[in-house]
Simulated scan of single mutants.
Amino acid sequence: MSSDFWAGYISGAIGIIIGNPLDLVKTRLQAGSSVPTSIRTTQNIRSQFDSATSLVRGAAAPILGYGALNAILFVAYNRTLMTLAPSVTDPTNPEGVPLSQIWLAGAVGGLASWVISSPTELVKCRAQLSSHQSISSWTITKDILRRHGARGLYLGGAVTSIRDSVGYGFYFWSYELCKRFMSTKDETSSQAAIKILLCGGIAGIVTWASIFPLDVIKTRLQAQGSPIQVSPTNQPLLRPTASEGRVLNALGITKEAYRAEGIRVFYRGLGICSLRAFIVNAVQWATYEWIMKTLNQDSLMTT
């Protein structure tokens, strides 16, 4: 495997481990009435973190899936960027490349990663909205496959693909823009490390701010039929959560949410998401660039 694959995989898995507790809160704030009553209040959400296992609820699927997603994302981004700008030899330092090409390469990378992100997001979302701690990501996955087949794992796939493409376009664009703005001559290694952390964190915030309404719609769409109990029989683990038991599409979800709560519903949880995004992406970018440099140096030494 290439160095950017492993750098992307490891940094993605680390990001999920760090950011999962705040992601749990963000998902429940976005889901609104789709969350079971027993965990809907702030007090009960806080109580979910009383045990060590609650800190990683719903993280099993993302740790496996998001590592692969991040690997595909960075590989697709790097290859697309080098196709658009053949002069680029080091995708981690694309000096002189127009920012529009960087955005396009990021959008292509995001679209490529959708194959993994859509089912991963669905399973994670339903695990996080469960009121029963014993429901695992694997249990949810098996139930979806049993009832709907492989196609069921791509509920909300269209919204997720748009979210990923637009979001990752801004992700790489804002990261590179920030790096160029903060670059100085003769910077020390510590200054370079701080720059990567700050730029990674800022890129995470910009990304989520650009696509947060889409993410709210995606969460509410996937929350329809979220798991509420573990059944010892063959009874379904899922229940409809749309109004009057109907399963709504993305447009229906949007109309219903706006009619019930107004425009602010599409930005609920943005604050906690921005905090998570800064921390996670600062660490992810620092990890990614460090692994890339380490692996590339090892490769040069062996040749």
Rank of each mutant, 00 (worst) to 15 (best):
T233Y: 11
E289W: 07
F278Y: 08
Y77R: 06
R28G: 02
P227N: 08
L84S: 08
V216N: 02
I279K: 04
D186W: 10
S38G: 11
D164T: 04
Y171C: 06
W208G: 10
F266W: 00
R264P: 02
L153E: 06
A61D: 06
I39V: 09
N20P: 09
P213K: 04
E176L: 10
R151M: 14
N234E: 14
F181K: 15
A107G: 03
S51F: 05
F170K: 06
T294Y: 14
S34W: 01
A209R: 12
T139S: 13
N78Y: 08
F74I: 10
Q133T: 13
A107C: 04
L275V: 15
S11A: 13
E289T: 15
R57G: 00
N93P: 08
N78D: 15
S189H: 14
G204D: 08
A209Y: 12
S299L: 15
I18G: 02
I16V: 14
F278L: 09
I211W: 01
P98G: 03
T219S: 07
F74T: 12
E187W: 07
E95L: 09
I205E: 03
I196R: 05
S38W: 06
K179S: 12
S100T: 13
G110C: 08
I72F: 07
V280W: 05
I279P: 07
K195A: 10
T233E: 15
T207H: 07
T89F: 09
V280A: 08
R28D: 00
T254W: 01
E289Y: 13
I10E: 11
L153N: 00
S226D: 00
G19P: 09
L300V: 13
L248N: 07
I279G: 07
A76K: 03
A282L: 10
V108F: 04
A150W: 15
S38R: 12
P236R: 12
L64E: 06
S38V: 14
A260F: 00
W173V: 02
G152M: 06
I116V: 11
A223H: 03
V35S: 01
D186K: 14
L238C: 13
G110A: 10
A105D: 07
D143L: 05
L251W: 10
L270I: 07
V206W: 10
G109A: 03
G167Y: 04
D90Y: 03
D4T: 14
G67S: 09
R28V: 04
G201T: 06
T120H: 06
S118N: 03
S34A: 10
L270N: 02
C125L: 10
L29R: 04
A209C: 15
G15Q: 05
S165N: 03
N281Q: 12
R46C: 13
A71C: 08
Y77N: 07
Y258Q: 11
S134V: 11
F212Y: 12
S113A: 15
R146E: 14
L84K: 11
P98D: 08
S137D: 08
A282W: 05
A76F: 00
Q133M: 14
